[in-house]
Design a protein around this nucleic acid. Structure first.
Lengths: 194, 194
DNA sequence: GCTATCTTGGACCGACCGTTCCAAGTTTGG
DNA sequence: CCAAACTTGGAACGGTCGGTCCAAGATAGC
């Protein structure tokens, strides 16, 4: 018998996600969310809860719909170092040009904001998934790596590097410089040229 | 003839710096600054200007009094890779334990906040100084490095890595994991063991 | 000790914050 | 076509925001 929602909750959540991604949680007001989505406050609160719930939902959506598919592609690529290089190439491209240029990564941005435990769990999961995908890609690299390479440690290194790239890109870092840093990391993992 | 300030402007600025460092600019109100410093709003505004000016001054103080002395030590150390290892050891120690544990780096945190151009200049300068110091330390490393090492690229890599460490430490990353990532970076820069 | 000059405390400002609430509107099962 | 169940727009809430202002206090040259 009841009335039904007059909007698509996930489509709206995507708009909210972009808003929080670009401008940060603390500096985005509910009024802006209302303006960007076209929803009324009532619908917003009835559907998603308060601002913090909304932010967590948007952040979770970001991780699930944007980050994790890319991590999955990295883990299943199978080419080894070229897969990792492609991951970073696309990352830098997305961070420095196009629709989301200078937005950084919503998860990286979230690191610098509040210490909410619910948010932190999302952050830790993101880091864990990325590191695991890196580790899998490194396993596939096999002889492309120096024989003494510690795969876990290298995966951690590459994960931290990705966060560094995300962070610096938000402040407008030059894409070429970021690529240079990534290249140095990958080159240093390779065996010395004969 | 005039009256004189009843407080030490730099000592107060240090308290403000700590407040913004720990809690971020957007989520710290002027009322909290007033409470933390014991100053009145009048003195605050007369001495430092508005909140944004105050934040920029605090951030600048952080860079000049906390970051750059460490960069200077890194650049003049002369030991090469051990100097870089020591830099990261102290960084991770400071980020994960003691008085400022889980505060991250105020500059790294600032990356994720506003896009204010004045702030951005401070950020870029910070990055430039760190990269330059890294480059100097790498030059001193000489034969500790693989002969084909691109020093500029390696300096960029280590700089991005430092930002990654800063970011993850704020979210509570395990110090041992961070050390592992750093060790992987330094090991991969070394020539293969004979 | 008077006075010019600056500082200080704190009341006060309008704007905006996140949130609540309710009357009106919409849908659907009967 | 009614009525129960839900959504919706928008007014309204108390609280907090950054910022201003002024009377009272402190200082130092004279």
């Amino acid at each position: 018998m009841p009335d039904v929602k007059h909007f698509d909750p996930d489509a709206v959540l995507e708009q909210v996600e972009r808003l929080f991604w670009q401008r940060g949680a603390a500096s985005t007001g509910v009024a802006e969310v209302v303006a960007a989505t076209g929803l009324s406050r009532s619908s917003l609160y009835a559907t998603y809860g308060g601002k913090q719930d909304l932010y967590v939902k948007a952040l979770t959506r970001y991780v699930e719909r944007r980050s994790e598919p890319v991590f999955q592609a990295l883990a299943t690529d199978g080419r080894g170092l070229p897969a990792i290089a492609a991951f970073f190439d696309r990352l830098i491209e997305a961070r420095c040009a196009g629709e989301h240029a200078r937005w950084g990564c919503m998860v990286s941005n979230a690191h610098a904001e509040g210490a909410d435990p619910e948010v932190r769990r999302v952050l830790d999961r993101h880091q864990d998934r990325l590191r695991t995908a890196m580790r899998t890609a490194l396993e596939a690299a096999g002889p492309q790596l120096r024989p003494d390479t510690d795969l876990d440690a290298a995966a951690e290194l590459l994960t931290l590097l990705a966060y560094g790239v995300n962070l610096r890109s938000r402040a407008g870092a030059d894409a070429a410089a970021l690529r240079e840093g990534v290249t140095a990391a990958l080159d240093s993992l390779r065996p010395a040229a004969a």
